Each structure stands twice: as structure tokens, then as C-alpha cells.
Amino acid sequence: MDDRRRPDEGHCIPPVGLGIAAMDRLMPMHLHLSAHGRITARGPTLAKIGAGLELVGRNFFDLFEVRRPGGVEVMADLVARQGQRLHLCLRHAGAEFRGLAMTDEAGGIVLNLSFGIGVVDAVRTHGLTDADFAATDLTVELLYLVEVKRAVMGELQRLNQRLQGAKSHAEELALTDTLTGLRNRRALDLALARTVAADKPFALMHLDLDHFKAVNDRLGHAAGDHVLRVVAKVLSNETRAGDLVARVGGDEFVILLPRLTNLSRLTVVADRIIAGIAQPMVFDGQTCQIGASAGLTVSTLYRLRNAQVMQNDADTALYAAKRAGRGRVMAFTPDPGPK
């Protein structure tokens, strides 16, 4: 005796003679509608998406909105568009689908749904797995490709960050004096070129240590290295954050001071530096006593600014300070004609 009931009586019967398990396996996102538009069966994936929402027994158009093509509001409209691609959404869950409707032998409709290009978001939103799709559905392969791409892109991004970090670290090392942590000659040349090109006022201070060789000769190079590190700390403490302090030779330093050309103020800075360096330094129980001399020049003295010319002039002023007795600062005095 056949106990199958009519589709519009609310009993979940499989359409077109297929068993329920077969339909669920072949089309896990299917709906079966009676001739009157009542949902009589739904695939397990739709049940998962509409968790807490009973689909079976409800009117299809109460739960779903067909957005494209337009004007599909009753069963006759759906039947008239069988075989056409449908765009629809589940009103209460906000899920969007692509679908294809076909009539069955009882006058109802089998509607097979998929997510289309929104599958990745749908999987994430509803916690779906490959078990929620038909075994032959290319969606599963698409999901694997998406996951592989995400993993590869993530690894490439991390690799790129490591490479950028390594590059930045290498660039920093290339511009840093390893003993003192100050900038080196290359960093000074680059900064000077940028400052000259920007056509902004600046000063250069060339500083040389006095009696440093005696420390090396008497106490050894370890003591000399200690003195240089202390000098670097004095220079950093007595200059501004935007100034560049570079060690350009064994005991030679150059300071680039942007936006500062007042010789009185520059002399005060140089005097503080010289006084700090003159303080006794203790290494391994031995006192190291050195001094410093400095030469200054400012960009406002030059009609045409040339970094090399200015460095030479600061060097000239430095040796004038040494000849004048050391432990002092002198500013470069140009010839009467402008440079």
C-alpha cells in the first residue's frame, strides 16, 4: 500500500521518485514546493543555514524573496521561469542564493540552490564544511583553493614583512657607526645632500678630540673605545632630536644642525659639548682626560650652497681653533667675496 501523501499536506516526501537520502546527498541545498507554494522538503544544508527557522510547511514566498528576475511573487511566476537562473534570499537569515527551478510530475517545483560567488562569506558565516555540499559540487574545490590562496598569501605577507624588517635593519646598520651608535660618514653625506637640496638653512660643526692619542697609547684601545662611547653620549645629550651627529673618523665628529644659523647660539652649544667632553672619564680604575676643539660654518654665508665646500670650511675653522690653543670653538670667516 502506498502511504505517500500529497505534497501540499506538509509531509516531507521526495520528488520525482527519489528517496530523501538520495535527494539530500545529491542536492543538499534543495527545496521541494507543492503546487500551492508550500515547502514540503528541504536539504540538510538549508536546514543548517536556517537554524531555528522551520522551513517545512511554510509558504515559500513568506520565507524567500526572488530578487531577479523581478516579478516572481507567486507559484505561477516561478513555474513560468523554470530553467532560468534565479537570484533569491532567505529573508530571516540574510543568506543569498543562486537557484534553478524545475517542475515535477505532481505539479510542484524542485528548486536547487547554491551560493554563487558569495560562497566564501557564506561558509564563514554559517560554519559550513565540505559535508554541506554535494560531492560533485565544484564549490568544495573552490573552498580548498581559497584556503590555499589565503595560506599562501598569509605566508607571503609574513615573508615580505620579514624581508622588509631585514632590509630596514641592514640599511640602519649601513648608516650607523658600530662602536658609538652614532651616524657614519655615509649617513652624513646623504643627510647633507637632502638638506642642501631642500634649500633650508643649517649649520655644520666639525669636532675633533684633543689628546685622544695619549689615552690609546697609555691605556690601550679598549680605553679609547670607552672614551669614544662617552663622547658619543655627550654629543647626543647636547644636541636636538632633529640634529644629526656622525662619527666620520677615528676621533672626528660632524654635527648637522638644521634650521640653526645663529652663531651665538651655536657657540653656546659647542661650549657645552666641549665642557662635557673635558670631564674626567674613568676606565678600569684609570682616569682618562681629553678635550675637544670645534669649527663652525652656517649655510647663510654661501650664495651657492655646496656640501663639500661647507665641510672644508668647517674643517678650516676647526684647525684654527686648534692653533689658537685647543679646547675652544671658532666660526669660519669667509673671504670678502661671496662663495
Rank of each mutant, 00 (worst) to 15 (best):
M281E: 01
L256R: 06
F253C: 06
F253S: 07
A307W: 01
N262V: 07
N306F: 08
P280F: 01
P280C: 09
D251I: 07
A307I: 04
C288Q: 02
G250T: 09
Q289G: 00
A275G: 12
D313I: 00
T300K: 00
L244Q: 13
S299R: 05
L244D: 08
G291Q: 08
L301D: 04
S264Q: 14
G291K: 09
A270Y: 04
G285D: 07
L256C: 10
T297I: 09
G249K: 03
P258G: 12
L301R: 04
Q308L: 12
L263R: 15
L256W: 02
Q308W: 00
R265Y: 12
T297M: 07
T267Q: 14
A307S: 14
L296R: 06
F283I: 08
L301Y: 02
D271V: 02
L244M: 15
I273S: 01
T287A: 14
P280H: 03
L244C: 10
C288W: 04
L244I: 13
T300L: 09
R303Y: 00
G250W: 06
D315F: 07
L304E: 15
L256S: 06
C288R: 01
T267G: 15
L256Q: 05
N312P: 02
F253P: 03
G295M: 01
S293R: 07
M281S: 04
I255C: 05
R247F: 00
V298Y: 03
Q279N: 10
R265M: 13
I255G: 02
R247N: 05
T261K: 00
T300A: 04
D284G: 05
